[in-house]
Amino acid sequence: MFDVLTSQIMLRALIAAAVTGLAAPTVGTYLVQRRLSLLGDGIGHICVTGVALGLLTGTSPTLSAIVIAVAGALLIELIRSSGKASGDVALALLFYGGIAGGLVLIQMAGNGAYALQGYLFGSITAISWSDVWVSVGLAAVILVLAIALLPQLFAVSNDEDFARTSGLNVRFYNVLISVLAAVSVSVAMRTVGLLLVSALMIIPVATSQQFARSFRVTMFAAMGAGTIAALTGVSATAFMDAPPGPMIVLVALAGFALTAPVGVLVQRRRKARIPFAADVLPGELEENPVEEPHGHDHGPGCGHLAVEHGDHIDYIHDGHRHAVHGGHYDEH
């Protein structure tokens, strides 16, 4: 059994899996923050066309996948930033076009279904050393950019408007995140396959964000979770007859499922620590322009029923609503 783990095939698979599991969640953290968890899926769909072009022209499918993925990511970012309601539908059209076009092109390439399967579901045990080094190189590029530019990328993902008024080039950083996602997809394509690419970017983040209190901890813990899932999934295939890509994703999901109950408890405890706003009321206010019969300042916990009214809160007493307003009160 030990021999299996140390064989050349296994070694290559483990290295490729480890770098993918390490790099993919860094980009995934930014995607989850920007509520674009499914972006990786979309790019994966578009990549099918890229792979098909590679097979058709006899060049490296990985290279053509990267080119098409980056082009697709730029197009997605353009559609998204236009902010139109129809953008959502436009993206769907792009994704379906990518996958359908790819399938037709692959049929034209001749070796159709079999070649495609390796890219759709991963073919980590069939990769060469040069494939491994390409993966390592691309993963390194992703890691360096995603971590070195963390302050900027965090600011843009966390609050785009504020980032713009800080003078950051928001469009540049948004495009950078999309391009990094495209490169991650191209790398993970060989490991888990295009259909499951997004899983390796998102599931580790979903697992780590249950416990983390900060963005950085979420990201680094997700990198750890991704690496562990990738290595465990590949190792498991040495002992049982299972495809490595889906195995990695199942292990990652199992990690999430096992930690979820603890995560719920942790979140509940943190929320319970929010103090009642009522523990500090401005009792010692010097000037109080309110005449009788208003004996006290209304505030949270003052004993009167609070009613949200547009953007302020009215308090109900003596059968009417009481609205603090300018220097006086309106009785509604």
Binding site: V32, R35, N158, D159, V205, A212
Partner: peptide, 20 residues
Amino acid sequence: STIAQGVPSSVWEVVASGRM
């Protein structure tokens, strides 16, 4: 603001982005 959405972020991290 979107500061409380998505991935957890700490008070320090959000305030630190004011130095951009």
